[in-house]
Design a protein around this nucleic acid. Structure first.
Lengths: 194, 194
DNA sequence: GTCTATAAGAAGATAGAC
DNA sequence: GTCTATCTTCTTATAGAC
């Protein structure tokens, strides 16, 4: 059972999460958060000392969601090769949002990588989580630790590249066209490992 | 011979170009431009009505630089397959900046793709320029227009993905490791076209 | 815990002297 | 063409009543 305060705090985090994704971090103002949550300025500051603190809470929240998702993939599918295919399919399932707003991890890293490195490092943790999971899959397929990390980075790069180009052109079809090629590459790559 | 006014205008554009790349568009203030150029506020407004106008001039400038570069590649190398390799090598040559600040086209598109779509469309022209050039190369290698565009988009996606991941981790080595694979893919792909 | 009112500063943009 | 001074608006953040 969640207390009233926790509910309000959660509402602020979930709303800020969406606003930061759709409108960027710097471009989203406190007023935007007030308007979208119906929680007044002063009250938001009761829960978070600064806007940066809201970002930290948002990233913590995203990390939980990502971790839960990766754990459920690992739980429900035993074959790492199919797990990796699921990773690619995730892009297809979110194709509409990705084309409109870009990758939730990539875009905020790109935004904060300019002049706000302290904040970028916080958001980088999302990449670390995926990277670690990917490394684990490739390791299970027999790759040594160096190769597994290299393949994990290449996998991340493929996903980022497809998403970036689709976002630039706000074009869902780019994702639909590129994901099958991405999957084919994953199959070829994991095949040679076995 | 460039007039005094043109020189000042050019100084503003080149400085803003660098600041927008290194610090992002929204995060770079008028004061930053004043400090970096030693041109006073009022005088900058003599040359540009708004900050958006400066962005437009910056993008126009970048488009000229990109076009000149692509033209010189086309002039100096007759084989489209080697021209495409040159495209990949460009990333290697700029590896340090790419790791620190990301792709000059990709990051600004990602930033402005959130809530500032009008401005994003301006920056998209940089992608259009590369895309058109890449299409032309693949066409010369025998690809039909649909395939050429698909390969152009995939080529852009590869470059964007590598750059993005390298920027997230501020890691030059990622670029050094991935570009040879990118080149190998280009060779394989152009080989099957001939 | 929640709210209103407001402070303090930075942003983009303008007016007008020189 | 160049400059200083200033306006307006928006930003994050705080004070203090309830």
């Amino acid at each position: 059972m969640r207390s009233k305060g926790d509910q309000v705090r959660h509402l602020i985090v979930e709303t800020a999460n969406r606003l930061f994704y759709e409108g960027g971090y710097n471009h989203t103002s406190f007023t935007d958060i007030v308007d979208a949550t119906d929680v007044q300025r002063g009250n938001i500051y009761y829960y978070f000392k600064t806007k940066d603190d809201i970002l930290r809470a948002v990233i913590d929240h995203r990390l939980e969601v990502i971790t839960d998702m990766l754990n459920s993939w690992s739980r429900e599918e035993k074959d790492p090769r199919i797990r990796l295919i699921n990773f690619a399919r995730m892009l297809l399932e979110n194709a509409n949002d990705l084309a409109r707003f870009g990758c939730p991890m990539g875009t905020i890293n790109a935004e904060l990588g300019k002049g706000q490195r302290d904040l970028q490092r916080i958001t980088r943790a999302m990449f670390d989580t995926f990277r670690g999971w990917l490394v684990s899959q490739y390791r299970q397929l027999g790759a040594n630790s160096r190769l597994a990390d290299e393949l994990a980075m290449e996998t991340l790069a493929r996903a980022q590249g497809i998403t970036m180009v689709a976002h630039v052109y706000e074009d869902v079809d780019t994702i639909k066209r590129e994901i099958p090629k991405f999957e084919a590459w994953l199959r070829r790559t994991t095949e040679t490992l076995k």
